[in-house]
């Protein structure tokens, strides 16, 4: 069944993001020779596969009206744990991967549990999670741990060749599987619909008899799982574990989700939008590399500016909705502005 595509506030942001991506890629193709190559397009996925995975987890959290600041640190912890288990303890890779993924699930479960049971703001609890995971990295080691394990080496250097000689890495395959799973779960499962319901109005969701408590905890478990998986994918990319990996990456993840059209007040958004958000993010980076004279820090400024534009757009939609009397009253700021 093909969903009817209509221009409303729900899918307009996603379309705008897609349009922005096409525009930016087009500008790059016209300005720089060699930009419009299939491999250059696929590199967007290869270089940002970990961000894609983080983004999927973060999308669920933000749709539910929460936030998860721990993802960058959790990614770093995952790189440290996997590299140390592989290189120092010489564990079998087939054992390392589940253990690392479980560590992410455990942190997510802990944070989700505290947020739900003690009714504490996700912002603060995941902030503690950020500190905790980052600190645990240093408990493992202060130095970089290189990975020489054969399985990891193979995963890093393997290429999945597509038609025309262009290739993607196994990481991209993993990321795309996560994206597909995310899209399926958010659209077609009870869990996914409950996430939207919580984001729309938690009180109503409870009154409707939806399993709000369980779902909210599971959202953070899923985000923790995604960040641990992103960490493993990150080690496929860098072949090392380092405690400073992924500093500020939570901000990048949130930014790509917002650029992808997910409302930060919760209730509206899509995993597909986040994919476009990551592609826009990647294209900005590539454009700056191709341009050559701008220093790479302009990426951050450009991302900040885009987040600004998208938030502005969201506000316009929200105030229009508010005029129809549907909107719930958000914190201090919004009410003051009305």
């Amino acid at each position: 069944m093909k969903p009817k595509i209509s221009l409303n506030s729900r899918n307009l942001p996603t379309l705008v993001t897609l349009g922005l991506f096409v525009l930016m890629f087009g500008v790059g193709s016209i300005s720089f020779s060699g930009f419009l190559a299939p491999q250059n397009f696929l590199n967007l996925f290869i270089d940002n596969s970990y961000l894609l995975i983080l983004g999927v987890g973060m999308t669920f959290v933000i749709i539910s009206g929460g936030i998860d600041l721990s993802v960058g640190s959790m990614l770093a912890f995952s790189t440290m744990l996997s590299s140390s288990l592989l290189e120092k303890s010489h564990w079998n890779p087939m054992l390392v991967i589940p253990v690392v993924l479980l560590s992410g699930v455990a942190l997510g479960l802990l944070m989700g549990y505290i947020i739900q049971i003690f009714e504490l703001p996700p912002f603060i609890i995941t902030l503690a999670g950020l500190y905790l995971a980052r600190g645990l990295c240093y408990v493992i080691s202060i130095d970089t741990i290189g990975i020489t394990n054969q399985f990891w080496q193979d995963a890093a250097h393997a290429q999945v060749v597509l038609i025309g000689g262009a290739f993607i890495s196994p990481s991209v395959v993993i990321a795309l599987v996560v994206v597909m799973a995310g899209m399926f779960v958010s659209r077609s499962t009870k869990f996914g619909r409950t996430v939207y319901a919580i984001g729309g109005n938690e009180q109503s969701a409870i009154l409707m008899g939806l399993p709000v408590a369980r779902t909210k905890i599971l959202i953070y478990v899923f985000s923790g799982f995604c960040s641990a998986l992103a960490g493993i994918v990150f080690t496929f990319y860098t072949l090392s574990g380092y405690a400073l990996n992924g500093a500020n990456m939570e901000m990048d993840a949130i930014a790509t989700v917002v650029i992808g059209g997910t409302l930060l007040t919760g209730g509206v958004g899509s995993v597909l939008g986040t994919v476009f958000g990551v592609m826009v993010y990647g294209t900005i980076q590539v454009l700056i590399v191709f341009q050559g004279t701008l220093n790479s820090w302009w990426t951050r400024i450009a991302i900040g500016f885009l987040v600004f534009l998208f938030c502005l757009m969201q506000r316009l939609f929200e105030s229009r909705k508010g005029a129809r009397g549907r909107k719930r009253v958000p914190p201090a700021s919004a009410a003051a502005a009305s």
Binding site: I67, F123, M251, I254, A255, V258, L264, T265, G304, V307, F308, C311, L312, R315, S319, P330, P331, A332, S333, A334, A336, A337, S338
Partner: peptide, 13 residues
Amino acid sequence: SRIGMQPIIATLI
């Protein structure tokens, strides 16, 4: 105050 963004998002930018 003027655009009415959530503080955490506004300052995230």
